[in-house]
Simulated assay, not measured.
Amino acid sequence: MPRTALPAGAAAAIAVLTVLAGCSGVVRVDPPTPTGVAAAACEKLAGALPRTLDGLDRVASEPASPYVAVWGEGEIALRCGVERPAAMDPTAEVSDVDGVGWFNDPQRPALYTAVNREAYVELTISPEHAPAAIQVDLAGPIKAAVPQ
């Protein structure tokens, strides 16, 4: 049976996520290509991320990358070392969740980016999950691995 990463509306809004069809449960996510300090921080973050998040187990992504983590059938996906959000202007609202600043792109409501770090950390959350709870669970690993 084909598996989907996100509900149709969210999947359309998040072009980076696509799912490989089949029963493998492997989720296709285009990995970013950070360099330097950002790459080192993202590699450290990869080892600090939880195995479960909001009741979902971590699953494999394709292609395999230390800069990508996926939980469930793609319901939650993290990409570390992405570019600065294009929609974030100097007056954009950023929410602080346990010491991590999150920008929520108003044009892509399922997309959040941690922006007050040496590497931008992008988080895609399907509507079935509460973003704040997930951001709280990820705050510790992000703060420990990705310096301000």
Rank of each mutant, 00 (worst) to 15 (best):
D30L: 07
Q148R: 14
V68S: 10
G72H: 09
P109C: 06
P85Q: 04
V70L: 02
W71R: 00
G81R: 00
F103M: 05
D98T: 12
S24F: 05
A60K: 14
R3H: 12
P31E: 03
A5M: 04
P32G: 02
S24P: 08
P85D: 01
T33Y: 09
A48Q: 14
A8H: 05
A69D: 02
D96C: 07
L6T: 01
T33P: 01
A41G: 12
G55E: 10
A110M: 05
P141L: 07
S61M: 03
A119G: 09
Y120R: 07
W102L: 06
A11C: 13
A8D: 14
D89C: 05
E83N: 13
A145V: 09
E93L: 11
G25K: 08
V100K: 00
L111Y: 13
Y112H: 15
W102A: 06
L53T: 08
A41K: 03
I142V: 15
V100W: 04
G25I: 04
V115M: 07
P50L: 08
S24R: 10
S65Y: 13
S65A: 08
V136L: 09
L53W: 10
P131A: 12
P131D: 08
G55C: 10
I134H: 06
A130E: 15
A15C: 07
D57M: 10
N116Y: 12
I14P: 00
V70H: 01
L138E: 07
A10D: 02
G22H: 11
G99A: 05
S24V: 11
A130T: 15
A40G: 10
E73L: 14
P32C: 09
S95H: 14
R58M: 13
C23R: 11
V26H: 00
E73Y: 10
V94Y: 04
I142C: 02
S95W: 10
V115N: 03
Y120W: 12
N116K: 09
R79L: 14
E75V: 03
A40I: 06
I14R: 04
P2L: 08
W102F: 15
A39I: 06
A38K: 02
A46V: 07
R108L: 11
A5C: 15
L49R: 08
D57F: 14
L138G: 04
A144Y: 11
E118S: 13
D105Y: 13
L56Q: 11
Q135W: 05
V146S: 01
E122D: 12
A11W: 02
P50W: 04
G9M: 00
V59L: 09
